[in-house]
Design a protein around this nucleic acid. Structure first.
Lengths: 207, 207, 207, 207
DNA sequence: AATGAATGAGGGTTCATTCAT
DNA sequence: AATGAATGAACCCTCATTCAT
């Protein structure tokens, strides 16, 4: 009878994560993945239909999780970001409060959702159907930015919107990659980066 | 006699640019390049010694130009950035002047040096002697940022320094990729991005 | 499961032996080898890691066996060659005994160690880590000759020493190639050759 | 008008000599030859029809010269070798005379005819119609040996005959390669080798 | 006569995938 | 379910040779 063993599937996924992270989809080698997964090439194809299917299994879920994060974040905004300190013009005099309160809160919700698979999805999906997914994700973020801008009463160009979304995301990814195992350093840097980003963005919105 | 045809060399370079941009050095295929260049594999090697040589022909000059750009920029700072409007604290009340005067000047000097080949150099040079180039350039930029920070009397952490350099570079690259053939849109977006970036950075420095 | 078939490995080795013998390592073609071996290029690499590995599988063991032969021969000399008939001057009157007794004994120990793969090792290993092996073996042989000369109380020049070693080896190789499959003819010729060689050498030593 | 320049032809031949000597026919590269010959690939084919034709031009003449040498030598034998010292049985007591008189005379006639091209013909002609020519040449030598044997009243097997011919030739070639530029060393070694060879051969004939 | 651009077969090797066991 | 042998296209590159100039 055919009972797939979850531990094998997980081993493959775990090694695939390393491989795709290190080389991206196109340069990743199934041979290398199964070699570290303690199984065989043939058996690999019992668990995953193809290299593409493996990639999808790895990042597809992540894509959904991140989409959910965005949605959740949008709702949460009511609680966190839509405080009066973000009302037009006021934020400049509340940087201290933002630093002490808003940013930590933001980080605490974002961090758990950022992981290696998301990095793979965003940086190593070329040659995959997800190479457009990365863009879709960014659209979500940029929509979010766009909403914030509207709240500020500012019309922001789609180009700039997307650019900022990419910058925001790539910055956070970069920080995660930099301090994968050091929460303190990571949070410190994230705090600085978010502040930098908000200040920069607000200066545009504030024109 | 049958002479080396510039149109073939150009065709190869043009196609190589597309290929390296699309797949990076290692995944780029000479066969695909020559197929679009209307010549034969053997003849390719009459024009370029190897895949490496082709890559160098494409981005080597670009690397030198960009290095020169950084150096030049550092010198020009004396004229452009070291105006009194950048004295500590004053910049906040001079954003208008920065937008109207400083940024356009900055862009006018940067633009000619940014192109597709630079993107290839920075994003597709893995497996090449230039694979460290990206980091070298980032070091130049981060040194530059570091100097500016010192002028502001601020000590900036190495992590943040590098992060900002990466963000700055990736942002500019993104803009180039976005508006490869539309100078106006590109300049507009670059202007906004630089302003965004300066404002963000200054908010950090100003703490 | 589909197991590695010894007949394929053997077929490859057999064809490789022919190919390396015919063209030497560098000019040998894996495609030609697998074409005669009734398998595919890709499958070749399931059996052998590389052209180098194939060559090593073919001659590596042979190299060790031959080195051992030389060592063994040096030790056996005490029993076979150091008989009184080889005392200075006496050998000339004992050619009959040498022919009937010593040479057959010598040959009986040499023969099993001489084969086609040794020829490949010695003549077709250019471009391989074994390309110095031929010289190493010659050094062993010439050291051996040198010892014999000393026993005869004769100083022999290095040039002549090496020359004789080369001649001895090449002569034996030639005989192997000539009568690959006919033991009787091979032994007869080897006997004659060894006698010829000893007589010639002794005439030099006896000066 | 089409006048072939002898200096170009000679330059090509000279470089080809080096190339064929260094790599043998199959591994020799026409590109390398013309690169050192200060001409072009295309022009090469004005002078020589093909790689094969070039090889033939190089060693064909040598083959004829060497054939002539053998013939000449056979005639000269009447004067040199057919002296009474070579009468059956007597040679053993005339080694001194052979060394002092016969060998130097032999050498003086052989040396001028041995050169690089002959080495190429004998060792680097694989893949050429001359790879059999080398054998033909050896047949001439072995016929010569056979005649000497007959004069000694000895029947010598064809195998042994050819083997000795090969050994004789390869020995001499080896010496020439070893001391290409040192006449004294070369002659000394040749003397020793010829003595060695004669003594060995005579011991066979004398049985 | 002279040049070297152009050709395409062939070199060793890696790859994702299929299929016999 | 599991194994890994088998396949063949594709990788970069070299070669002798041809042919346009």
């Amino acid at each position: 009878m055919q009972t797939r063993k979850p531990e094998i599937e997980q081993a493959i996924l775990k090694q695939a994560e390393q491989e795709f992270y290190a080389h991206g989809f196109e340069r990743a080698s199934i041979r290398r993945i199964i070699k570290s997964s303690d199984t065989s090439i043939g058996n690999f194809y019992n668990y995953f239909e193809s290299k593409d299917a493996l990639f999808e299994a790895l990042v597809g879920e992540e894509f959904n999780r991140f989409s959910a994060f965005i949605t959740r974040h949008e709702q949460d905004d009511n609680e966190v970001f839509n405080k009066e300190i973000f009302e037009r013009g006021k934020w400049k005099s509340h940087t201290g409060e933002i630093l002490d309160q808003v940013v930590p809160e933001l980080i605490s919700r974002m961090i758990p959702d950022f992981n290696l698979r998301l990095v793979i999805l965003l940086e190593g999906s070329k040659g995959t159907k997800y190479e457009t997914a990365s863009r879709q994700l960014l659209n979500l973020i940029s929509d979010h930015f766009s909403d914030h801008a509207k709240e500020e009463g500012v019309e922001i160009s789609r180009d700039l919107n997307i650019l900022l979304a990419e910058q925001f995301l790539s910055g956070i990814i970069r920080i995660i990659k930099l301090h994968m195992d050091d929460n303190q350093k990571r949070n410190k840097l994230l705090t600085e980066f978010v502040l930098f980003f908000f200040a920069g963005a607000m200066s545009l919105f504030g024109q």
